[in-house]
């Protein structure tokens, strides 16, 4: 099987958007370009239940055929690794099931196969998710309420890099923050494969103001198109494994 690439956006936020485009609609658009949208909602220490403001987190990820989790800052490291991994597995599962259908007929998916055959399919999927190239846009909400969570977000991203560096497939990422005073999003780190750089560019202070999540998502997603003209990325742009295959769950 051809080695392909998977493209993801990872949005980290703690609240609902209050300006600009509808983030759910934007997310639906983004997945149609072959990019899945994953969202992590960060709770305040004194929030016991999932607040209404964070409900949007799940809706954005669902529209974007991605994975979402709502967690306390302390659990961020574990969660980021899991969300990224699961999102990749889902995309690949969707792709492999699609391939199976084309070979075995319309009604077939992995779960309809006998356990023995399933074991072989599983191995193909594991190989793919280990070796496929991963391109990731990380979009961090730095509005005022995120201030107390910034160091935890930084730690968790740093930890995520340790996991992604260990994979066999190539890994490229870029980091954006929103909102900023003048622009919707600000580029913090351009496409790179060096996981160690994230700790150095990460902002220590939140910026404050409105949270235009939808517009920020749209702007950040453009990074994938810029990258196609980019020399570094040209090699990775072939054979995208499309997340929109995945039947929504």
């Amino acid at each position: 099987m051809n080695k392909g690439s998977v493209s993801q956006i990872l949005l980290i936020t703690d609240g609902c958007s209050n300006q600009g485009e509808d983030p759910v609609a934007v997310s639906r658009h983004i997945v149609s370009t072959g990019v899945s949208v994953n969202v992590i909602g960060v709770l305040d220490d004194d929030q016991t239940e999932e607040p209404i403001g964070l409900r949007e987190v799940n809706e954005i990820a669902e529209a974007g055929k991605g994975v979402s989790r709502i967690v306390y800052a302390d659990d961020l490291s574990e969660t980021m690794q899991m969300v990224t991994q699961q999102a990749m597995t889902q995309t690949i599962q969707g792709y492999v099931n699609q391939e199976l259908k084309s070979i075995l007929g319309d009604e077939t998916n992995e779960e309809a196969l006998p356990p023995e055959t399933r074991g072989e399919v599983q191995e193909v999927m594991e190989d793919l998710s280990e070796t496929v190239d991963l391109n990731m846009v990380i979009l961090v909400d730095t509005s005022a309420s995120m201030q107390t969570k910034m160091s935890a977000v930084k730690e968790a991203l740093d930890d995520l890099m340790i996991s992604l560096d260990a994979r066999q497939g190539q890994f490229m990422y870029t980091v954006y923050q929103f909102p900023t005073r003048k622009q919707v999003v600000k580029l913090l780190l351009d496409w790179t494969d060096d996981g160690k750089r994230i700790a150095k560019v990460f902002p220590k202070f939140a910026v404050g103001g409105i949270t235009p999540t939808g517009s920020a998502l749209r702007e950040a997603a453009k990074a994938f198109h810029i990258s196609e003209q980019d020399d570094v990325m040209r090699g990775a742009a072939y054979d995208v494994i499309d997340p929109s295959y995945r039947s929504s769950s």
Binding site: S77, D159, I162, S163, A166, R167, Q168
Partner: peptide, 24 residues
Amino acid sequence: VGRGIREYTSIYDRGFWRLGGRKA
């Protein structure tokens, strides 16, 4: 061997302590 470790428990994981990577 050579792949990325995905299932681990923080205190037993050298990546968590920044004493190494997660390559198997």
